[in-house]
Amino acid sequence: MLALLATESGLTKTEILSSVRGYAQRYVSGGDNANLERQFERDKDDIRELGVPLETIEPLGEPGDNHNLRYRIPKGAYDLPDDVRFDSDEIALLGLAAMAWREGSLSAESRRALVKLRALGIAANEPVLGYAPRLRLRDAAFEPLTQAIDRHQIVRFDYLKPGEERARTREVIPLALVQYEGRWHLAAEELATGEGKTFLLRRIVGKISAGKPAPERPGDHMARSLADLDAVWERGIADIEVRAGSDAAQRLAHRRGTEEVAPGTLRMHYVDLAILADELASFGPEVLVIEPPALRAAVIERLQRTVADHG
């Protein structure tokens, strides 16, 4: 890697394998270097995944000739820009942000980001009150979806919509992953219809298969998706009677956007009727759904099921 940073004109693969330490000792001039070439491909992936801008330059007049492709790392694109510097408070906050990911697939990334930022030599200002934030990635679909988004690939998966008997296969361009009210959603464009859709990760059944390159879809998909979810949340209104002093009364009243419209009656917002029905069912006799009828029916159906399963 040092060699690639030091070169301005770039090095060909043969030059790298024959001269750079680590490769050169095992390089057989004019012989079979298949193992070494595979090693080189892996190293290239590692370097790119680290965010190191490894460039390839096609030799003039020989487009498509892979053999004489030259590799280099432009110094200007490698170094952290000079105006990107952080103060001690910011470093502390970044440390917390990284800590939130200590479980799951993003933990390696956030750990590496912190290591890189430590190169700047700034010590964190420890806050007086300790925080231990944690974002969980329980959804198996998270990792393959982030990868597909980064690599601009189309994905296929089976999705089980509430109320439907079996899962349907969807083929979409994945655009962004957003956590809303503690649950991960995928913002995507359905390939067949070109429509923007939001999928709840926990309803994705089975494996995600990623494949064909996806067309570019520029834009702030995170903001659009959060705005969509907000709009759904705004429209979803339920009136719930809660028993005074109960767990339900306490916890539901603390939810964002909940208001008491009459003594003991809460008006709350929701995104997903099936999820709210599960939550309300857990409160047993502490809640009574007044509106909407679909939610009332869903809660009754859930309670009947639990009674039947435990009778």
Binding site: L2, L50, L96, W101
Partner: peptide
């Protein structure tokens, strides 16, 4: 030789920190 400055973050590294910040 060659290295004297801190390296840039990768797209995923930056994204992890940014999403963490939004959370906080």
């Amino acid at each position: 030789v060659a290295i004297d400055d801190a390296p840039r973050l990768s797209a995923r590294e930056a994204a992890a920190l940014i999403a963490g910040l939004q959370y906080l």
